[in-house]
Amino acid sequence: MTQLAIREAVKARQDEIQRRGRGLGWMSLGLGMAQLAAPDAVRRISGVDDSPTSRMVVPLVGARELAHAAGLLTSRRKSIWAWTRVLGDAMDLASLGVAIAHRAGRRRRRLVGVTGAVVGITVVDLLTAVQATRAKRIGTVRGLREGGSMELTATTTIRKPPPKVYEFWRDLGNLPTFMTHLEEVRTTGDRTSHWSASPVFGKNVEWDAEIVDEAPGEKIAWRSTGNADVPNTGTVRFGPAPDGVSTEVHVVLSYDIPGGALGKAVARYFGEEPHQQLDDDLRRLKQVMETGQVVRSDGAPWGKRARKEFPQRPAQPLSDAELAKGADA
């Protein structure tokens, strides 16, 4: 398949899972409403209208279905919610089994019918859950790995006036203090600079860049020049916040991600939620501007590497050896 075809296929599969998840969500909603609104009818149809316990259990099961519905209909993470449905099915089958064992005649026939239906539903739930879990694994990363362009946006508010924040950013050498994917940015001229990526982004990846547009205190726009491994552009705008003391920072970055090993490394860096990386970069910019440094904890001691450190080390002090080895241990 061509790169495009693979991406389309993955997307089609995910859409299908989202659709089926939504279908199950609507079913949960209907079932839940019925069990809450007309519990007696539900009890009669299921053949458990003779049991006082069922008077309590049926509305509870209804409430559970509503929770599933909310999850399946509103969350993109269908996998988790699909699994909670499987769990619910197992609970229902267990109570139905108990109920059948204690009944005969008309009620028993009805119960067997309902049980058959629940078994069918369980199969669909199980299928959706398994597929949704798999789809989550291949998702975005595979799409990116095959190359393509990607645009990220993020924004934050910093309690410093716009000229201060602009000034800090315009000194491009400051960018690596808060941007994880940069190792060093060296100014080479009034508007030109040389950028080196950090190893987490790609080993020995470097490029030249030039500022293409700027308005002091308001805006800086740049782009990579020449034969960059990962061609990219960026714009940052600084505007006054309504409180009169802070700056709203808006950033747009875009990357042309190549195929091959480098593309794979970059895709791994961005992970399943690429915008998170930029969000975290801006959080650290805010830390540096407002408090002087990137904040470290025992669980995440290496500052801008925090996200790469999951699962983190325990929240207990570092040993001298760990401290000496540093982030790359």
Partner: peptide, 20 residues
């Protein structure tokens, strides 16, 4: 930060490295 300036210290915007 803005939260600290408003004395909402337990919502400080800078002190949590796992803010994400």
């Amino acid at each position: 930060c803005g939260a600290c300036a408003a004395e909402l210290f337990s919502c400080c915007e800078n002190s949590n490295p796992n803010a994400g």
